Computed example of a mutant assay.
Amino acid sequence: MPSARRALALALLSPLALTLSACGDPSYHYVKNSGDKTYFRVPAEWHEIDEKSLNSALNDTDPDSATAEVIDKITWSVAYDADAKPSAAHLLGLGSDQPFVYATVRRLTDPEQGTISLNHLRDLFLPVTETSRQTASDNGTGLRGFELLRDELLTPGHGVRGVRTTYNYSAALGGLQTFDLTAYASDDGHLYWMIVRCSAKCFKDRKSELDAIAESFTVRNT
């Protein structure tokens, strides 16, 4: 093939090669709950946790119980673990130094809607406000080493308000852990929140990656 024709062929094939490469395995899992208009993304190599085992671990209920059935009806939840041996227990950093992300949406009852404050959102996962931390200490929960790293108000509009709060706690089996909580409440009676957890060292080393996951958590109430 003459050199001019060879150059032309290579020029035509290069965009095709790029297109085929882009059609390979995506870099992310794009997670969505279309019904509640909730979206986020995690790296494609992370492992999804079985929802029943996740709910069972978080709510201390038998997955086949009537209570679990009620929770399933009003709650959507999903979790991804970067550990090679994924487990719901890693949400609290027990036995894993790898990142873990958990997201959930729940319909609020009418009485609950009147009780959701910004401080309530901050305390959704672990005690963050001074009052909540004092209560936890009085009850002997064993939580220690609290450090507040970030506390921001989120105002996406359209009847949605929220907070992003990042803090450290020392877990009994996992050392110092960083928890990055993003939480929203909507005027139509929904509670949305995501927690990204990693050891404090891991969080520093992978800050850009973990920030991107937290910032991808999107709620649209329109």
Results as ranks from 00 to 15, higher is better:
V160L: 08
T61I: 14
P156Q: 08
F100W: 01
A214N: 14
L92P: 04
K32F: 14
A22L: 14
T218D: 13
A66H: 11
L10G: 09
R5C: 10
F146H: 04
G142H: 06
A11D: 07
L18R: 11
G93I: 01
R197T: 07
A84F: 06
L12D: 06
D187I: 08
D50F: 00
A7I: 12
N119A: 12
K201S: 10
G35I: 03
T135D: 13
G95Y: 01
V196G: 06
L181K: 05
T67N: 09
N168D: 09
D81P: 01
A103W: 00
L148C: 03
L210S: 03
R41I: 08
D50Q: 01
A66S: 13
S117E: 12
R122N: 05
F100I: 02
H120D: 12
D151K: 07
S137L: 12
D50E: 09
R41K: 14
P15T: 06
A89W: 05
Q177I: 07
R161W: 08
G140S: 00
K85R: 10
R161M: 12
R122I: 03
P86K: 03
I49D: 00
D123W: 02
P63E: 01
Y184K: 09
T104H: 06
A214W: 05
T75V: 08
G24I: 08
S208I: 14
S87W: 00
L153P: 04
G24L: 04
Y30P: 02
Y167A: 01
A17G: 15
S27L: 15
A200S: 11
V128Q: 00
F125M: 11
D187M: 01
P111I: 11
G174F: 05
E48C: 05
V78M: 06
G114W: 08
G159T: 10
A4I: 15
D83T: 07
A172M: 12
Y102R: 05
L148D: 02
V105F: 04
I71M: 10
L58R: 02
V70M: 11
R106Q: 15
S27R: 13
K207D: 14
D83S: 13
S117K: 06
P127G: 08
D97M: 08
L12W: 01
H158C: 10
S53Q: 13
T115R: 11
L210I: 04
F40N: 01
E69P: 09
L13Q: 03
D123P: 02
R6H: 09
W76L: 11
L18A: 14
F146R: 01
Y102T: 03
D187N: 13
L126S: 05
L148Q: 07
F100N: 04
S170R: 14
T67G: 07
L92S: 10
L148M: 02
P43N: 07
D25K: 14
A183F: 06
E147I: 02
L108D: 05
T61Q: 15
V163T: 02
G140A: 06
S65Y: 03
D211H: 08
K85V: 13
N221E: 10
S65M: 12
K32I: 13
W193Y: 15
T166E: 06
V128C: 02
S216R: 03
V78H: 04
K201G: 14
R106E: 11
R150A: 08
H158N: 15
G162Q: 10
Y167D: 00
Q98V: 04
D60R: 10
S199H: 01
F125H: 11
P111M: 04
W46F: 06
D110W: 12
G159C: 07
D64G: 09
